[in-house]
Design a protein around this nucleic acid. Sequence first.
DNA 1: CTTGACTCTGTACCCGACTACAGAGTTTAT
DNA 2: ATAAACTCTGTAGTCGGGTACAGAGTCAAG
Lengths: 166, 166
Amino acid sequence: MNRAATNSEQTDAQQEKMLKIGEVSKQSGVGIEALRFYERSGLLGRTARTESGYRIYDPEVLERLEFIKRAQVLGFSLDEIKQVINEKRAGHSPCAAVREIVRRRLQELDERMREMNRYRDDLAAALAKWDEAGEVEGHICGLIEATEIDHRIARNKLTGKRKAGK
Amino acid sequence: MNRAATNSEQTDAQQEKMLKIGEVSKQSGVGIEALRFYERSGLLGRTARTESGYRIYDPEVLERLEFIKRAQVLGFSLDEIKQVINEKRAGHSPCAAVREIVRRRLQELDERMREMNRYRDDLAAALAKWDEAGEVEGHICGLIEATEIDHRIARNKLTGKRKAGK
DNA sequence: CTTGACTCTGTACCCGACTACAGAGTTTAT
DNA sequence: ATAAACTCTGTAGTCGGGTACAGAGTCAAG
């Protein structure tokens, strides 16, 4: 809770050490354009402004950004993160929603990894086979021609498509 | 090799049973717009045309399309597939190129799957923890706040980014 | 008081692999 | 002969998560 009120207190904003966008960017590693993009997207709420229109951030935003990054790494889309944040701001605990999303992610992930494993093995097998057999003329390449996986793997599952359900 | 010359022989094209784009689409499952897109992208070469400008395909194109689909499932981008095909058409065997690409894919895939495994475990652990502990107030959600994975997983590796090297 | 660093808005662009549409011409079936 | 079905080109839009300007205004140091 104590957010390091180091030195040079109250410049002209209220009194807490407010941050301008560049500082937030540096400290969070998020990138100015991305910060504005997040705001436009409703992930940061309406940011406070100086009289001249500069965004000023409460240092709390750094936690919020950490949250966002963490959620992204966990596989949440920005849209889902927004849902979660809005749930929270609407007063109810977002945990039910979060849990739902995580459950879904987990299932998808398991499925995807199962496919990837098969895919990996096919790839490795093809490569090994090719390594020992040398070239096969007449076809484009034995490597690809020789693999038969298409009937086992649902297309477009490996390429990372995920259409944001709900 | 025998491509079922069923009935209604030589309409007005050369003599082989040429296909119009709709038939190719139906037989390959590829979609008319995608076929034109592939052609624009250089994956199918310049397609033959009737006098009136309709594309006419040799049934061989179905094999080519199977090749493309297979390569896609294997994780090749259309750009890489194009490289391979062009190598082939330039006279040299594309196998060296293909092998390089496959090697790269395989490495990336292994790396990605290692990350995914950690990710999956974190997710599952967070969910289990949440299930037993109930809600944690004061923070947005214990589920996400409680996970510490960001320092272990390189961001953007899980989201499926792959910038087409070379 | 001027220079340079910072910030603002708004718009457009990037990637990849397509899909959608408009408006025109062609072929096929009745 | 005419309508339905097909095909053509060219342009624009989709999705997600941003990035990259341009042109204008603001702030801090010398």
